[in-house]
Write a protein that binds this DNA or RNA. Structure first.
Lengths: 193, 193
DNA sequence: TTATGCATGTAATTGGTTACATGATTCA
DNA sequence: TGAATCATGTAACCAATTACATGCATAA
């Protein structure tokens, strides 16, 4: 159900086509919530039917058209309502911890590789998010720039700070993952000869 | 797909009925991977068809019967193979970070409540996992006790340590969440008056 | 003019949630 | 005897993944 609100979030910055949204899911908001095109297009149509967004055919090239979606007053209200209500937490479902808990059944080298891959993966994510924070702070992020255009300048700080803070949360969690995996490498060396 | 391996993991300790498995999902392995009964019973049947487990009807009371599942040689091989192969990482999908990124649209008090709930939730989880680690270390955890029975004593340390380590990973991540949410409370106070 | 990018979809399947349903057993 | 627990399911639904499919626009 969060996909709907990820889409609304994106459309609060500016009107977009389905493809624009899809591209943004690869970069900005996509670092927090990813969705494939096959999920985006149908969801946008459902949201239009529910009156949260309004689609408008605009010409594209000589014969082509594309559909640009714009958030409605109802859409903004639904987005605010979602933000104001408490989120529900889902039960734990953690495939990596599940693996780690049973590493005594694995080859020692597979265990080591698991932790090394885990470190690499999260270090990569951390770099992506740090880059993201940089483009948010210096306003070079195109989606953010468009968003700020539509807002009074004294709102800019709040808008930027919440986004930076969200990415910092991802980074902190990823750092905890890296620290854990490093201890994991040491543990394998200690337990297996 | 991890459900299947969570079930295999559980059945490496001892034969169990579907209901036993379901109960264990509420406590031990359930802190890492949760599943409802409506998912467990059909999956066990599929796993039996695939030859990973073998079901045996055993009498229960005077007229009743129940089905006890036991892992097969093929099941153990499949479990080991899963542990030896590298996991695939899924794209980010984080509803809480999504919310946090757009808190400028929420009521300030809703933002504060969001972070307070976040802290409470994760502190609760940390306590559960710390209790879990205690019962693993002192071998009072019933599932672990059964598992150790079937294994030579010089294997006990490895078995226990990997499980403790997995729960420590969950705790470290949860602590990162708490620290983040505490900074979040301060941020709301700074940005909203 | 051809490759790349823009644009939009359908279909099948998997994994998971929620709700509903039933009956036997055990213990207080 | 009645409540709690043990035992096992079905059905409808939703969210997400994977694969397949098409065609226009633009720039090198």
């Amino acid at each position: 159900m969060s996909l709907r609100f990820a889409l609304l979030a994106m459309l609060t910055s500016q009107p977009m086509t389905g493809y624009d949204v899809y591209k943004n899911f690869e970069t900005s908001v996509g670092y927090v919530w990813h969705a494939p095109d096959s999920q985006i297009y149908p969801e946008l149509r459902r949201m239009e039917q529910d009156g949260l967004i309004r689609g408008e055919k605009v010409p594209w090239g000589r014969k082509g058209t594309k559909k640009r979606y714009e958030i409605t007053v109802d859409g903004v209200a639904a987005f605010r309502a979602w933000l104001n209500e408490p989120p529900q937490y889902t039960r734990e479902r953690d495939p990596l911890r599940l693996r780690a808990a049973y590493l005594e059944w694995a080859e020692p080298d597979a265990g080591r590789q698991f932790f090394r891959d885990h470190i690499d993966y999260h270090c990569g994510r951390i770099r992506d998010w740090e880059d993201m924070i940089r483009t948010l702070r210096d306003h070079t992020n195109p989606t953010l720039a468009r968003r700020l255009e539509g807002q009074p300048e004294d709102e800019w700080q709040r808008i930027v700070e919440y986004k930076v803070f969200a990415y910092e949360g991802l980074i902190e969690r990823a750092r905890a993952e890296v620290a854990w995996a490093e201890r994991g490498l040491a543990l394998v060396d200690r337990l297996e000869r």
